[in-house]
Design a protein around this nucleic acid. Structure first.
Lengths: 183, 183
DNA sequence: AATACCATGTAAAGAGTTACATGATTGG
DNA sequence: CCAATCATGTAACTCTTTACATGGTATT
């Protein structure tokens, strides 16, 4: 039920269509949750079937009708009661680390190349998050509501930064073996 | 196919039964991959059906027979060729951050309590990893093979440490609102 | 006597990925 | 004219979780 809560959390702030929600998952929800449009549309259909949220058709002239989803009072109460239950830390499943674990069967240069690739990806994400920070959270004194959101961005920033730092150390250590190998 | 690679990576180091593999996922694979015994047994059955690994029955006197899995030369080559393909960073899906995102609908004290709970969990993991580090990786000069494994442990350590640090900051920021609320 | 550990699985449900499918509009 | 964006979905498949199932041994 993970996705449904993420959808409810987003809809609790503003009414959105499936398309809008998919954009949100690319952006501000993306720091900690990812979902494809297929998943989102299916889940929204399921939730509205079960009356866990309500829909309004917003006819448009030159495009398909938008289905705008929002929460009723009861839906919001359900969300709030979920906020009060305990959740568990997420499971980790990282292919790159599986590779490192079996790294002895390949060349250090191979691992170095892929680590550098990942480092670049994390660097890019980090910079994107920094821009968002500067654009939307430049203000030093934030409201409680904004602080909550900002903390999720901070998590994203810390996560990416930590990755980059670990990558640097890993690259330095592997470099020693790459030199030996080619010497 | 993520789990299958993790299984192959583990079996490439030593022959193991399903049960042993489940233990490994609690331990040294657990820094970056989690899998339940059900998943493991099913995947092993699937892989050996497709001859992607080989099994040897090891009869035991007072216990059920152990099925010990190992890699043939061909299986190992398949693993090595996977090592040379590019993989993607994992998707993040964290319930606690969904809660923070919707934190405005609940009390700061509520969030603080849960963050503290998670902080303790991460602290415990961190300490476990530190003990493993001191027990198995005390030696300062590691072979290439051991360095690869050690880097996955380092990732685990960095991940947990980063989490704890972020938690501290989050708690400090939320504390300000908790005081205001009760004043 | 109870709990933990060893050792293996099946089955159903829930969640996520990938491929397929459609069709108009806007900007370069 | 081409690519990107808006806007919605279905279907098949894979992966993960949860519940059910069995039965012996060792330790407290």
């Amino acid at each position: 039920m993970g996705l449904s809560h993420a959808l409810l959390a987003a809809l609790s702030q503003e009414a959105l269509s499936g398309y809008d929600l998919a954009r949100r998952f690319d952006g501000s929800l993306g720091y900690f949750w990812q979902a494809s449009h297929q998943q989102i549309y299916r889940e929204l259909a399921r939730l509205s079937e079960q009356s866990l949220l309500s829909v309004k058709l917003q006819p448009q002239q030159k495009r398909p009708d938008r289905k705008v989803y929002c929460l009723t009072q009861a839906d919001k109460e359900a969300l709030v009661s979920w906020l009060q239950t305990q959740v568990q830390p997420p499971q980790q499943r990282d292919d790159l680390l599986v590779k490192l674990y079996a790294g002895r069967w390949t060349q250090p240069t191979q691992l170095i190349e892929e680590l550098m690739h990942h480092q670049r990806l994390h660097q890019q994400k980090y910079e994107t998050y920094r821009q968002i920070e500067q654009t939307y959270f430049a203000d030093t004194s934030l409201s409680y509501a904004d602080t909550c959101i900002k903390l999720t961005l901070d998590y994203g920033l810390a996560y990416e930064q930590n990755w980059i730092k670990w990558c640097e150390q890993a690259l330095a250590r592997l470099a020693a073996f790459a030199e030996q190998g080619s010497a």
